[in-house]
Nucleic acid binder design. Sequence first.
DNA 1: GTCTATAAACAGATAGAC
DNA 2: GTCTATCTGTTTATAGAC
Lengths: 203, 203
Amino acid sequence: MTGLDTNTEDIILKAARKVFTHKGFDGARMQEIADEAGINKALLHYYFRSKDKLFEAIFVEVLNTVFPKIIAVLMSPVSLFEKIEKVSFNYIEMLKKNPDLAIFVFHEISRNPIRLVGNFKNAGADFNIIKIQIEEEVKAGNMYPIKAEHLIANLISMCVFPFIARPVFMGMAGMDNDAYDQFLEERKQIIPQTIITAIKTRK
Amino acid sequence: MTGLDTNTEDIILKAARKVFTHKGFDGARMQEIADEAGINKALLHYYFRSKDKLFEAIFVEVLNTVFPKIIAVLMSPVSLFEKIEKVSFNYIEMLKKNPDLAIFVFHEISRNPIRLVGNFKNAGADFNIIKIQIEEEVKAGNMYPIKAEHLIANLISMCVFPFIARPVFMGMAGMDNDAYDQFLEERKQIIPQTIITAIKTRK
DNA sequence: GTCTATAAACAGATAGAC
DNA sequence: GTCTATCTGTTTATAGAC
């Protein structure tokens, strides 16, 4: 996260990441990336040949920031309820540090869904693990049945969407920036609480 | 929705809406809009002067598709639980018809949040109505207390995000297009069920 | 490796004929 | 109103000096 900014290539990557994630591929300008990096446009092409190639480097990096850690939690050998708590905490924590990533990733994927294909194979996501785990919890009488697709969609939606809709939610609820950060922090508890209360069987 | 495609202005608007909502402002090309409309680039400028002006027309139209109807439901004089059901149904129904709108709106707002300011004043959204309604339901013993901000955030997140994350969720869960449409349809019931079960007091 | 200068392609906007 | 042709500014990318 720090200290790697000594060589030009890393300085460029850092600047490119900032500009691309904030403006998107189409809105980003090589000039702005060069300015942000404190260097010259020509040097970007010296290191990365083209805007496309530079973007590709950033996009892979971002996908590796956004997905693998959460997938690792979902695939880990802990209880379903613990997973829900961990995913909520980790996702909100990560997005608070990188608030532009959510809208960036989904905008770029919608612009060109093909980008995903190669990246999901080696992510190690085996959705059946969750399905089986839910079945077992239901069988054990710990929860009401729900399709895994909906449970996971609910969880991720509630974590990620408030970062995408930030200005809209702020406007609706009349929150300022500090209040909204506080609101996001609260969601680390609210989300597991909501999901778990909704599905848990009282014994 | 139909029949208004007889005059050139409406043909342009329809084409522009398609291209802008699919590619975003930065990714859209006047040439592509002209092609889509089956006319000439110069004619776009004859009718709308500039790309900015044309976009503005589309964006206002889209905001009026996306927000007022849902706000109307939230402000209407029906029970909280009924509101939750209606919002889920209406939002999912609307987005199934206009699947590009979700990512488009939030991307453009993040690109330039100022755009929202003028548009929320006259939307008639008074968040206190929901707050008061929740307080009353809690007082009446019908539900556990929850901040209105979280309840509404949960609701809208679960409705909208699956449209934004469509390719990702499809990849994760191994769904094809038909399966995903079915999944979205199911959410009309799953979302109110999840939220209401989570908050409702059993009497 | 890094810069300045410039080429080449593109995209928005206008002029002017019909 | 609609078209073709063209201008102007912008943006990516390269050439070549240091």
